[in-house]
Structure formats: structure tokens, C-alpha cells
């Protein structure tokens, strides 16, 4: 190979419904590394891209929520497998995006892989741990079971470009929800590369949709969208948080108001799983 070989630069696009479209607005914005050097142009998603992503997520919901927990677990584990195979690439991208050394970046990538594995294992345990048989005072059999909320709009963490992203997306889809994710605004490239992993991991199209762009531009349209059931504010700009919550109230969305500065390297608990679950209680009489 020639020393002077010109590298093939990658065009980073959106990920909607299992496809990689450009923004319908035909806009892009330059993404730089932590020192300001140009890395790539990312698609600048618009409100209509957000709308398309919600449609795709809604369309995917019946199939994904209806899949067996075993199947969902295997798909999430497959994501970890494919990610593992691309460790080097992700380490380089995370290092560039977050301005940290490759070794440190490598640790974050490893943690992100392990996080997929952790949530993969949850898919077929949530019902047993969070569900119940209810000993009601009467001749009835009553049981309660957790079910996915629906379409979840996720504002991904602004700083933690991969581990943070995985930590907020995996719990959404583990239980059968589908997601529309607005990636870190300034550090979007690992997210788009992650979507290539998702697209080749047997994850049905539309289960995860990724939008790069200006969080403050896209988020209000997701917060007010009547076909979105829940909203994760983790990566929301501070100035916008209350407004987004107010919009979400218009259709009684579930809102996860994570405290700023969540440490994604810490061991997770079930709170992010529980945030997007509904408890359904079923009753039936007993008798001969």
C-alpha cells in the first residue's frame, strides 16, 4: 500500500427505519475533534426527520414488543458481539470525540460492550423481577406484568459519546420499547458508527433511530409529538428542560429527568428499565 494513499472519508448520515438517509433538509454541520480539527460533516436532522423517525419507531413497536424476550436478549447480545469486533474503530472515534487517550477510550468502549451484555441478560428477567402474582381477597387470579411504554424519545448525553449513549438506549429497547435518539450534538460520530453495528446485529429496522443535529432544534418536536410515549431528558440543554417537560405534559408523556452529570461508568441499576415500563394487571375469576 502506498505511503501516500488518500484515505476514503466516510459520509455520516442519519439512521431511520433501518436505513441511512441524509436529512430531508439536506443540511449538514461540521464535527470537530476536541481540539477543533475537522473530522466530518454530520447530517443536521430536522423536525421532519424526527417525524419520520417517530413513524419508523411506531411501526417497529408491534414486532419488537411482541418478540420473545429470549429473542430480544439474543439481539442485544449480538450487538455486543459485533461491537466487540470493531473495538479499535470505536476507540479511535471516542478518543477523537471526547479528547481522551486511546487507552482511556478503549476502556469506555469495553464498558459500552459490557453494558449491552448486561441489558441483554435483563430482557427475560424483567417480568419475573418486576411482575407479580397478586393475592387478592376474592375468587380471582390476578397477575401484573411489566410492558413496554411504546416509543421513547431519548436525548442522549452530550459528553459521553458512546458509553453514555449505550447506557440510555439499551434499557429502552431491552424491554421492547422502540427509540428515537438525538445523539450528542458535538460528538455524534461514535453514535452513527454504532448505528452501523445496530443495522448488522439483527435488530429490526426502526427499533432504534438515530438523529444527529442540534438538540435544541429537534427536541421540542419530539417532546410535543403525540405519538411519542416517553421522553428521556438526559442530554437536554439546561435552558430547555422545563419547556420540554411542559410540552411532554400535553399528552401525559413519561419523562425521565436524569440529574445532570450521571456517571455512566458506574454500575447501573434497574431505574432506567423501570422508567419505560407500564404495569398491566390482569384479573380472571377462578371457579369450576
Amino acid at each position: 500500500m502506498s505511503e501516500n494513499r488518500i484515505a476514503v472519508a466516510k459520509t455520516y448520515k442519519l439512521y431511520i427505519g433501518g436505513k441511512f438517509p441524509r436529512s430531508e433538509s439536506a443540511r449538514s454541520y461540521p464535527v470537530t475533534d476536541s481540539k477543533g480539527a475537522f473530522l466530518a460533516n454530520a447530517a443536521q436532522g430536522s423536525r421532519k426527520d424526527a417525524r419520520d423517525a417517530v413513524s419508523a419507531a411506531r411501526k417497529a413497536f408491534a414486532g419488537w414488543s411482541g418478540a420473545t424476550a429470549y429473542n430480544r436478549g439474543q439481539v442485544l447480545y449480538r450487538v455486543a458481539e459485533v461491537l466487540e469486533g470493531r473495538r479499535e474503530q470505536f476507540a479511535a472515534e471516542v478518543s477523537a470525540a471526547e479528547g481522551i487517550g486511546v487507552k482511556k477510550a478503549q476502556a469506555l468502549v469495553d464498558a459500552a460492550i459490557d453494558r449491552w451484555v448486561w441489558y441483554a441478560g435483563w430482557t427475560d428477567k424483567i417480568a419475573a423481577v418486576l411482575g407479580s402474582s397478586n393475592p387478592v381477597a376474592g375468587p380471582y387470579f390476578s397477575f401484573s406484568t411489566p410492558e413496554p411504554t411504546g416509543v421513547v424519545a431519548v436525548l442522549a448525553p452530550q459528553r459521553s459519546s458512546l458509553l453514555g449513549l449505550v447506557s440510555v438506549v439499551a434499557p429502552v429497547i431491552a424491554s421492547g420499547n422502540t427509540a428515537v435518539v438525538v445523539t450528542s450534538e458535538d460528538r455524534p460520530l461514535p453514535a452513527i458508527t454504532l448505528s452501523e453495528v445496530l443495522a448488522t446485529s439483527d435488530l429490526p429496522g426502526g427499533v432504534v433511530n438515530l438523529l444527529t443535529g442540534r438538540t435544541a432544534e429537534i427536541a421540542p418536536w419530539l417532546a410535543s409529538h403525540a405519538d411519542v410515549n416517553a421522553l428521556d431528558l438526559t442530554g437536554a440543554p439546561d435552558a430547555l428542560r422545563a419547556d420540554l417537560e411542559r410540552s411532554a405534559a400535553g399528552t401525559v408523556k413519561r419523562v425521565l429527568r436524569t440529574r445532570a452529570g450521571e456517571d455512566f461508568t458506574a454500575e447501573p441499576d434497574t431505574s432506567r428499565l423501570r422508567a419505560y415500563l407500564e404495569t398491566k394487571t390482569v384479573w380472571h375469576p377462578t371457579g369450576v
Partner: peptide
């Protein structure tokens, strides 16, 4: 029509 009037996207449940 709802989207135009309400200023936000609507959904099939509406």
C-alpha cells in the same frame, strides 16, 4: 390537520 392547528405532530390514537 391537527399538526397544523396544534403546532405539534399528532398520532394515530388521536
Amino acid at each position: 390537520r391537527r399538526t397544523q392547528l396544534d403546532g405539534h405532530y399528532s398520532g394515530p390514537d388521536y
